[in-house]
């Protein structure tokens, strides 16, 4: 995904039920509902746009357990 220099949310497609709560929660519109369907039959969300500030809004809005994990980019110089 080329996320070396940016924050990102990792969405587990197997746990996502496609409710899109994260899609509307994200202040930067980073997440979208994809066209693929997972084993439960849901069109799951995916992290698409690299403008993530790792605010965690998607994480806290998500009604599933551990479907979203938020990663913060390395600090400069670290």
């Amino acid at each position: 995904m080329g996320t070396e220099e940016s924050n990102y949310s990792q969405i587990n497609p197997k746990r996502c039920k496609g409710c899109a709560a994260c899609v509307v929660a994200c202040p930067h519109g980073c997440i979208e509902i994809g066209s693929e369907i997972n084993q439960m039959g849901y069109q799951f969300a995916r992290f698409a746009v690299r403008k993530c500030i790792a605010c965690g809004m998607c994480f806290y809005s998500c009604p599933e357990f551990g479907a979203i994990t938020v990663f913060k980019k390395p600090r400069k110089g670290a």
Binding site: N7, R15, K17, A54, G56, F65, V70, F71, K72, K73
Partner: peptide, 25 residues
């Protein structure tokens, strides 16, 4: 990258009500 937000430790890793290893609610 460092993990900023992840599944809480107070939740089980899997929820075996439906099937062993299931991890969705």
């Amino acid at each position: 990258h460092t993990i900023k937000h992840q599944k809480a430790r107070s939740l089980y890793p899997t929820f075996d009500r439906k099937a062993p290893g299931a991890d969705v609610s």
